[in-house]
Deep mutational scan, measured.
Amino acid sequence: KKKIKIYIENENGEKKTIEIEVEGDIDEIAKELAKKYNVKIVKIEP
């Protein structure tokens, strides 16, 4: 498992940072999160 930080922006332009532990393809997981929460991924840090 890797701990990563995902910087997101919602439709109101509010920026947030999510810190999660992931296993597998980080890009795939980030895309799923973006779709699920309707946010834009700004940056992903390993």
Results as ranks from 00 to 15, higher is better:
residue 1 K to C: 11
residue 1 K to T: 11
residue 1 K to L: 13
residue 1 K to F: 08
residue 2 K to G: 09
residue 2 K to W: 14
residue 2 K to V: 15
residue 2 K to T: 13
residue 2 K to H: 13
residue 3 K to W: 15
residue 3 K to D: 01
residue 3 K to S: 08
residue 3 K to T: 12
residue 4 I to M: 10
residue 4 I to T: 03
residue 5 K to H: 06
residue 5 K to R: 13
residue 5 K to N: 05
residue 5 K to C: 08
residue 6 I to G: 00
residue 6 I to F: 13
residue 6 I to V: 09
residue 6 I to Q: 00
residue 6 I to P: 00
residue 7 Y to I: 09
residue 7 Y to Q: 06
residue 7 Y to M: 08
residue 8 I to P: 00
residue 8 I to Y: 15
residue 8 I to L: 11
residue 8 I to N: 00
residue 8 I to K: 00
residue 8 I to H: 01
residue 8 I to C: 13
residue 8 I to D: 00
residue 8 I to T: 10
residue 9 E to Y: 04
residue 9 E to N: 02
residue 9 E to M: 08
residue 9 E to P: 01
residue 10 N to M: 15
residue 10 N to S: 13
residue 10 N to K: 13
residue 10 N to A: 13
residue 10 N to W: 15
residue 10 N to E: 11
residue 10 N to I: 08
residue 10 N to C: 14
residue 10 N to R: 11
residue 11 E to D: 10
residue 11 E to V: 12
residue 11 E to F: 11
residue 11 E to T: 09
residue 11 E to K: 10
residue 12 N to V: 09
residue 12 N to M: 13
residue 12 N to D: 11
residue 12 N to F: 13
residue 12 N to Q: 13
residue 13 G to F: 04
residue 13 G to S: 03
residue 13 G to W: 02
residue 13 G to Q: 05
residue 13 G to I: 00
residue 13 G to D: 03
residue 13 G to H: 05
residue 14 E to P: 02
residue 14 E to S: 07
residue 14 E to N: 07
residue 15 K to R: 13
residue 15 K to L: 14
residue 15 K to C: 12
residue 15 K to Y: 12
residue 15 K to F: 14
residue 16 K to I: 11
residue 16 K to A: 14
residue 16 K to P: 01
residue 16 K to D: 10
residue 16 K to T: 12
residue 16 K to W: 15
residue 16 K to V: 08
residue 16 K to E: 09
residue 17 T to Q: 05
residue 17 T to C: 08
residue 17 T to A: 06
residue 18 I to S: 00
residue 18 I to M: 11
residue 18 I to H: 02
residue 18 I to Y: 14
residue 18 I to K: 01
residue 19 E to G: 01
residue 19 E to H: 09
residue 19 E to N: 05
residue 19 E to V: 12
residue 19 E to W: 07
residue 19 E to P: 00
residue 20 I to R: 02
residue 20 I to Q: 01
residue 20 I to H: 02
residue 20 I to N: 00
residue 21 E to A: 06
residue 21 E to R: 06
residue 21 E to K: 03
residue 21 E to W: 14
residue 21 E to T: 07
residue 22 V to S: 07
residue 22 V to W: 15
residue 22 V to F: 12
residue 22 V to N: 05
residue 22 V to K: 02
residue 22 V to C: 10
residue 23 E to N: 08
residue 23 E to A: 08
residue 23 E to S: 10
residue 24 G to F: 03
residue 24 G to K: 03
residue 24 G to D: 03
residue 25 D to K: 03
residue 25 D to N: 11
residue 25 D to V: 04
residue 25 D to H: 05
residue 25 D to Q: 05
residue 25 D to R: 04
residue 25 D to L: 04
residue 26 I to R: 02
residue 26 I to A: 06
residue 26 I to P: 10
residue 26 I to S: 03
residue 26 I to W: 13
residue 26 I to V: 11
residue 27 D to V: 09
residue 27 D to G: 08
residue 27 D to Y: 13
residue 27 D to Q: 07
residue 27 D to C: 15
residue 27 D to K: 05
residue 27 D to S: 09
residue 28 E to W: 07
residue 28 E to L: 12
residue 29 I to T: 03
residue 29 I to D: 01
residue 30 A to E: 02
residue 30 A to F: 09
residue 30 A to G: 03
residue 31 K to Y: 07
residue 32 E to V: 07
residue 32 E to F: 06
residue 32 E to N: 09
residue 33 L to W: 10
residue 33 L to R: 00
residue 33 L to V: 05
residue 33 L to I: 11
residue 33 L to K: 00
residue 34 A to V: 06
residue 34 A to Y: 04
residue 34 A to M: 07
residue 34 A to P: 00
residue 35 K to D: 08
residue 35 K to Y: 05
residue 35 K to R: 12
residue 35 K to W: 04
residue 35 K to E: 08
residue 36 K to V: 03
residue 36 K to C: 15
residue 37 Y to G: 14
residue 37 Y to C: 15
residue 37 Y to W: 12
residue 37 Y to L: 15
residue 37 Y to F: 10
residue 38 N to R: 09
residue 38 N to E: 05
residue 38 N to L: 05
residue 38 N to D: 06
residue 39 V to H: 05
residue 39 V to K: 02
residue 39 V to R: 00
residue 40 K to L: 09
residue 40 K to A: 08
residue 40 K to I: 15
residue 40 K to G: 05
residue 40 K to S: 10
residue 40 K to N: 09
residue 40 K to D: 05
residue 41 I to L: 04
residue 41 I to G: 01
residue 41 I to T: 02
residue 41 I to P: 00
residue 41 I to M: 04
residue 41 I to A: 02
residue 41 I to C: 06
residue 42 V to Q: 03
residue 42 V to D: 03
residue 42 V to I: 15
residue 42 V to F: 01
residue 42 V to Y: 01
residue 43 K to F: 11
residue 43 K to R: 13
residue 43 K to L: 11
residue 43 K to D: 05
residue 43 K to M: 10
residue 43 K to P: 02
residue 43 K to Y: 11
residue 44 I to E: 02
residue 44 I to Y: 05
residue 44 I to H: 02
residue 44 I to T: 02
residue 44 I to P: 01
residue 44 I to A: 02
residue 45 E to Y: 07
residue 45 E to K: 02
residue 45 E to F: 08
residue 45 E to C: 13
residue 45 E to A: 05
residue 46 P to D: 12
residue 46 P to N: 10
residue 46 P to S: 13
residue 46 P to T: 14
